[in-house]
Computed example of a mutant assay.
Amino acid sequence: MAERGGVRRRAVLTSVGVAAWTGLVVYGTGKLDEEPAPPPEPATGPYDLVSYPPDRRPPGPSLTGELLDGAAFDLSALAGQVAVVNFWASWCAPCRAETEDLEAVHAATRHRRVAFLGVNVRDDVDQAVALQRGRMTYPSLFDPAGRAALRFDQVPPNTIPATVLMDRRGRVAALFRQRVRRAELEPLVRGLADEPG
Score class of each variant (00 low, 15 high):
Y27P: 03
E35Q: 11
W21L: 15
P42D: 02
A20W: 11
G23Q: 13
V18Y: 01
G30N: 01
P42E: 02
P39F: 02
P39Q: 01
V18W: 00
P46V: 11
A19C: 10
V18F: 03
V18M: 03
G28C: 04
T44L: 05
P46N: 11
P39C: 09
V25H: 09
A20R: 12
G45R: 03
D48W: 04
P38Q: 07
G30D: 01
G17W: 10
G23T: 07
L32D: 04
P40K: 01
D33M: 05
K31L: 07
D33G: 09
V25M: 12
E35T: 15
D48N: 05
V26K: 12
Y27G: 14
K31N: 11
P39N: 05
T22L: 14
A19F: 12
P38W: 04
L32H: 11
V25C: 12
V25E: 12
A19T: 14
E35P: 10
W21V: 15
P36M: 09
P36L: 06
D48H: 06
G17Q: 07
Y47N: 10
E35N: 09
P38D: 06
A37T: 15
G17S: 06
L32P: 03
A43M: 06
A20V: 15
V18A: 07
D48F: 09
G23E: 12
D48M: 07
T44R: 12
A43I: 00
P40C: 03
D48I: 02
K31Q: 09
G28Q: 08
L32E: 03
G23N: 10
P40W: 01
D48L: 01
E41S: 13
V25I: 15
P36C: 08
G23C: 02
A19H: 11
A19D: 09
G30H: 00
G45V: 08
T29P: 09
P39L: 02
P39G: 12
T29L: 07
K31C: 08
E34M: 00
A20N: 04
D33I: 12
W21E: 12
P36A: 06
E35R: 12
G17F: 09
G28T: 14
V18S: 00
P40V: 08
Y47H: 14
E35G: 08
D33P: 02
E34F: 00
T29I: 14
V25L: 14
T29S: 15
E34R: 14
K31M: 09
P38L: 01
A43C: 05
G45I: 06
G23V: 04
P42R: 00
D48S: 07
T29H: 08
V18H: 00
A43T: 11
T22G: 10
W21F: 14
T29N: 08
G30A: 01
G45W: 03
A37F: 01
L32Q: 08
Y47K: 15
A43E: 10
P38T: 05
P38H: 02
T44S: 08
L24W: 05
E41D: 13
W21T: 15
L24T: 07
G17R: 03
Y27C: 06
A43D: 05
P39V: 09
K31F: 08
A43K: 02
